[in-house]
Amino acid sequence: MNCYECGQQGRTTPATAVCRVCGAAVCTDHVRTESKSLRESASPGKVTHDQPARQLTCPVCHAAEESS
């Protein structure tokens, strides 16, 4: 599978990740990586996990999430 973003620019680059929002394949140059705390529904005791999760998105979805 090749990077969708590179394909739009006329290049062929192997993809290394898939956007969690739109499902587009992206290469290491285009993938956006963030850490996010995982939360469980409210219940007695601990609600967040100690270790953050990794979220991978494409540049378009990352920009859309940042704009809200």
Rank of each mutant, 00 (worst) to 15 (best):
H30D: 14
L38P: 08
T16V: 12
Y4I: 00
P52D: 06
V47S: 14
P14R: 05
T16R: 12
R32N: 03
T12Q: 15
A24I: 01
Q8E: 15
S68V: 14
P59E: 00
S43P: 04
S35P: 11
Q8R: 12
Q8H: 10
H62R: 05
P44H: 10
R54K: 15
G23Y: 03
C22Q: 02
A15P: 11
A15Y: 14
H49C: 12
S35G: 14
S68Y: 09
Q55E: 11
C61H: 00
H62Y: 05
P44R: 03
A24S: 10
R54N: 08
N2Q: 15
H49R: 13
V21D: 15
P14F: 00
A42L: 13
C58N: 13
V18H: 03
T33Q: 08
V26Y: 08
Q55K: 05
D50Q: 07
G7P: 01
A64Y: 06
M1R: 14
R11Q: 04
R39C: 07
E66N: 15
G7K: 00
H30Y: 07
Y4V: 05
R20M: 09
V21T: 14
T28H: 08
R39N: 09
H62P: 08
Q9R: 09
P14M: 04
S67R: 15
S68I: 10
N2C: 04
G7I: 00
R32M: 13
P44C: 04
S67W: 06
R54A: 11
T33C: 11
A42Q: 11
V21N: 07
C27E: 01
Q51T: 13
Q8A: 06
T33D: 15
E40I: 09
Q51P: 03
D29I: 03
Q55Y: 05
A15F: 12
A25N: 07
Q9N: 04
K36L: 08
E65F: 01
K46P: 07
E34L: 03
A42F: 15
A24F: 04
D50Y: 01
T13G: 07
R32F: 04
G7H: 04
E40S: 14
G10A: 11
R54G: 00
E65Y: 12
Q9P: 05
S37T: 03
H62G: 03
H30E: 01
Q51K: 15
E40P: 14
V18W: 08
Q9G: 03
A24Q: 11
C61L: 00
D50N: 01
T13C: 07
G10T: 03
C6E: 12
V21R: 05
T48Y: 09
K36V: 07
C27I: 04
A24C: 05
A24M: 02
L56P: 02
C19P: 10
T12W: 06
V18E: 13
C19W: 05
G23Q: 09
C3L: 00
Y4C: 01
S41F: 10
S37V: 13
V21H: 11
V60Q: 02
S67H: 02
T28Y: 08
C22H: 03
P44D: 07
C27N: 06
C19M: 01
D50M: 02
V31E: 10
C22F: 03
P59M: 08
T33E: 12
D29R: 00
C19K: 04
C6Q: 03
E65A: 08
S43Q: 11
C6V: 07
